[in-house]
Computed example of a mutant assay.
Amino acid sequence: MTVVPERPVLVAPDKFKGTFNAAQVAGAIGRGLEKAGLMPPDLCPVADGGDGTLDALLPQLGGELVARTVTGPLGRPVKTGFGLIEGGGTAIVEMAMASGLALVGEDMDAWAATTYGTGELIAAAAQAGAAVILVAVGGSATTDGGAGAIEAIEAAGGIGRAKIVILTDVRTPWEDAPKVFGPQKGADAAMVAKLERRLDELAPTLKRDPRGVPMTGAAGGLSGGLWAQYGAALEPGAPFVLDALDFDDRMRAARAVVTGEGRLDQQTLEGKLVGEIGTRTRQAGVPLHAIVGRDELDGFGKRMIDLQMVQEATNLEELEAAGERLGEALASGEA
């Protein structure tokens, strides 16, 4: 008689924005699966290239955090840092940690907010010897087209031969950044128009013109500024992060995958992380389940990625309980 070894569940959630980071979500779900009697799961907290990317990549890739104090989005000092992986050859800069919306609180100022601190981190990473600098650009407070970051990088002497790779989950072009993202940063209609004029005036001063290029509008044009001035590569964040974490190999070694995010909706299928995971699990024939903050995706959308058991959970206790219910369903063959 051949004994088939038990296989783990791969737990690969994104953050629940504003509440829990991906590692907290994965840990809670994992505890629930084990309470149901399943073997320890393979915990793989993930990110889409925006805020939370450093937390997702650094622990799993065995890197270190280098502390720095930089200029915050409204000029106040911010204690933050950047990650180094691969023996220091690759750096990870998360712009939200230096120029993020969470750092301004109720003092949102779409005009004054600057990416200068992100530029300071990029320059520090280059000075630390990183040959590749990954810049995760979600969660920004800024719409300065990267002007602040470029100023900081030039003040520090440039990036030498380092290569910048932008990770983003949006395809918005440079000129659309103010109208798409400005309102969530405190900009009214008049301010949006003012920001559009500023970006339009900045574009021709750069080494190449970012207008009309997909993904150049991420983080209020930071991605486009770095693309235009330093030849930065623009990469969809979700597939990049999944590949970096060897997701496909881990998925094929699992009996099932459970993912999650704060809200499951139509946008999930439009390049977001859970949609990317769903595409991969469907192609590989691996069952996919989800535990989410809110489930607003219709049945047709779920069928598109063969999403099976979907549960809602809004705190860590509920996440653990949902994990336990999924574990019991898997153990009994009901899922």
Rank of each mutant, 00 (worst) to 15 (best):
V4E: 15
V9K: 05
L10M: 09
V11E: 00
V11T: 00
A12R: 00
A23I: 05
Q24A: 15
G27E: 15
R31S: 12
G32V: 11
L33Y: 13
K35I: 03
G37S: 13
G37T: 10
L43T: 06
P45C: 12
P45R: 06
V46H: 01
V46D: 01
L54W: 13
D55T: 05
D55A: 14
A56V: 08
L57W: 05
P59F: 06
P59V: 08
L61V: 01
L61W: 09
G62T: 13
E64Y: 03
L65W: 14
A67T: 13
R68S: 10
T69V: 15
T71M: 11
G75F: 07
P77M: 12
T80N: 07
T80D: 11
G87T: 09
G88H: 09
G89Y: 02
G89R: 15
T90D: 02
V93E: 07
M97Q: 15
S99H: 12
S99T: 06
D109W: 09
D109M: 03
A112C: 04
G117A: 07
G117P: 01
G119V: 01
E120L: 04
I122E: 02
A124P: 10
A124F: 08
A128L: 07
A136E: 08
G139K: 06
T142Y: 07
G146L: 06
A147K: 14
A149I: 06
A155W: 08
V165N: 02
T168A: 15
T168P: 06
D169A: 07
W174V: 02
K179C: 13
V180Y: 09
G182D: 10
Q184W: 07
D188L: 10
D188R: 08
R198E: 15
L202W: 11
P204F: 11
K207Y: 07
R211E: 12
G217S: 13
A219C: 13
A219N: 06
L226E: 08
G231Y: 12
E235W: 14
P236R: 09
P239R: 13
A244V: 00
R250A: 12
A254G: 08
R255K: 14
V258H: 01
T259L: 07
G262D: 02
L264V: 02
L264N: 01
D265P: 01
D265E: 07
Q266L: 13
K272M: 04
G275D: 03
E276Q: 14
T281G: 05
T281I: 10
A290G: 03
A290V: 00
A290S: 08
G293P: 06
R294Q: 14
R294C: 04
D295T: 00
D295Q: 10
D298L: 08
M304Y: 10
I305Q: 03
Q311E: 15
N315D: 15
L316Y: 07
E317L: 12
E318K: 10
L319D: 02
E320D: 03
E320K: 00
E324Q: 15
E324T: 04
S332Q: 12
A335K: 11
